[in-house]
Design a protein around this nucleic acid. Structure first.
Lengths: 310, 310
DNA sequence: CGCTGGCCATACCTCAAAGATATTGCCATG
DNA sequence: CATGGCAATATCTTTGAGGTATGGCCAGCG
């Protein structure tokens, strides 16, 4: 049985007349008669009563037509749904990210993407850079914000683009002696109780701070460690010490604290957007488009990475 | 787009391999490749990723396949449902009947039919013979129990079969003087307060009684009239008078009353089963079969009436 | 009562397209 | 670099969908 049979039966039921149904279908009457006869033979039951006053479905015909109409609706919807999925209007995006990405690019990118693609289901997973990498390789994530390029087995199958430069800044309470300064020096930091991150980006931050303060410095050993940047800022605002964290910390709106540059400027690994090089999923492409629009400086780099694969 | 395209896409998704899917479908590999390519062109989106390790649906393919599977399920169900409807296993039966049919044939027939055809929806409408007739002609009923053959416009398009003979009997309280008698005579009735029907079959019953008691008799004029046979029996059991009604009254189980034949035996119009001669609905046929099995003496008459139309 | 007209079924033909066979092209293996 | 497995392409065959012509059947009408 083919969809044609369903369409013909539905048209015949609608027009109650072989000739008119046929011309509506753009075919002649005899083929329609034959197709309906074939259909009735295959189903094993008479589906239409041919009376003098018109052609009407039998009880079996009514039962058949109800299913036929639903089948045709599904077929029509199949094309529509496939088109929407192909344009990335529907689907799913599994996004991995390090906690600090929640500070700066994620809120804007996600709200924009949610507006542009309201029917895409977003799955957000906070995780460390290394877990993001392996999840991307294993196909358990579609895209991830990581600290520095992804590493580990299979990382060569991933494409990554820096999303923003980052460096160490300090955060202090507004009543702290350093609050009025534009920047604080490494020497000044060594004389203060410090609050540093113990989160995902901890090794990178610690490495940066070690470079800044000196490997032998006891300042780091005595530092308070906090799980995330919100805690660092909270502790700093209550005067426990001087908080040190990524410059994207500035994006957190918080009264009672002041942010200062640290000299010498100490770079941190870039925040990086990564995804599987093989993945041409339209939802992913749409997401990359959104990121591109939201972070203009990313555009060129992304296009460079994508060309070779298209 | 044809059902073939859906079947091929589903098979390909299942086997993840053109060659194996094709042989499973009973065709060669090149035609399958072509049909899938045609399908992708028509949908306007790539539905499968051909990789080295297998053929996998894209996001668009997944969306398409979900709809395709449902469409194929509907198509399969269409044949099944049509077959069941054609065998009269599903559907609807609109049955008209006069109130007194509830006494004898209906309870048995309906419970038997309900057991044999559990998925047929029964619609029961108590109505007078004349309304049943016009409703049958208008196609608003499928079958009816009427008192005497249907009458009125279009009645010639109806087939009717007597289901049981009927005559007038009397019902009296067990303490009534007539209670011990095998039968009561017209003379005895003329000397008693009478209770007669004013229901649907009233004209027929009254005509019978008039024949029994004499046209000029004042006995009928003074009779109590009741809406239905249950009321007649109730009134008779409380000693208000002698109830007169159809012999099918005996089927009502009721303590405190006794039924007596009336002499001379006064026939009433037969209870008749009628339906549209044109109606070959399988549910109707199944119902007729059930009635036939339940009332063996009806069988021959029914078959006689049906042959000429098949 | 035969005629006519409308309608569906049948007969037969035509041609598009589904499917078969043979072959090419493309990688990922060894 | 050769090989093998797989999908795509090329070409041919054949099925069957659809077209045209016609027949059969009945209702309505002169």
């Amino acid at each position: 049985m083919e969809a044609r049979h369903l369409r013909y039966a539905v048209a015949l039921a609608e027009h109650e007349h072989f000739g008119r149904a046929a011309s509506e279908l753009g075919i002649a009457q005899p083929p329609l008669s034959k197709q309906i006869a074939d259909l009735e033979r295959e189903v094993g039951a008479r589906l239409f009563d041919r009376t003098r006053r018109g052609v009407f479905p039998t009880a079996a015909g009514e039962a058949f037509l109800a299913r036929a109409r639903r089948a045709l609706d599904e077929i029509a919807a199949a094309t529509v749904d496939a088109g929407r999925a192909a344009r990335g209007e529907t689907g799913r995006l599994r996004l991995g990210f390090i906690a600090s990405a929640l500070l700066d690019p994620l809120p804007g990118v996600l709200s924009r993407f949610g507006r542009e693609r309201p029917d895409v289901r977003l799955e957000l997973h906070e995780m460390a850079t290394s877990r993001s990498s392996s999840a991307l390789v294993a196909g358990e994530l579609d895209v991830a914000f990581t600290l520095g390029p992804p590493r580990g087995a299979g990382a060569e199958h991933l494409v990554s683009v820096p999303v923003g430069r980052d460096h160490v800044i300090a955060v202090v309470s507004t009543v702290h002696p350093y609050a009025g300064q534009q920047s604080v020096s490494a020497d000044q930091l060594r004389r203060q109780p410090l609050i540093v991150s113990a989160g995902d980006d901890e090794p990178a931050v610690v490495a940066g701070l070690r470079a800044l303060l000196g490997t032998d410095s006891s300042a780091l050993g005595g530092a308070t460690v906090a799980r995330d940047v919100h805690t660092i800022i909270g502790l700093a605002s209550s005067g426990v010490g001087v908080g040190l964290g990524p410059s994207r910390m500035r994006a957190v709106p918080r009264p009672g604290v002041r942010f200062c540059e640290v000299t010498p400027r100490t770079p941190l690994p870039d925040l990086v957007l990564s995804f599987a090089a093989r993945d041409h999923s339209p939802v992913l492409r749409a997401f990359l488009d959104t990121v591109q629009k939201h972070c203009p400086d990313v555009g060129a780099a992304l296009n460079d990475r994508l060309r070779p694969h298209t």
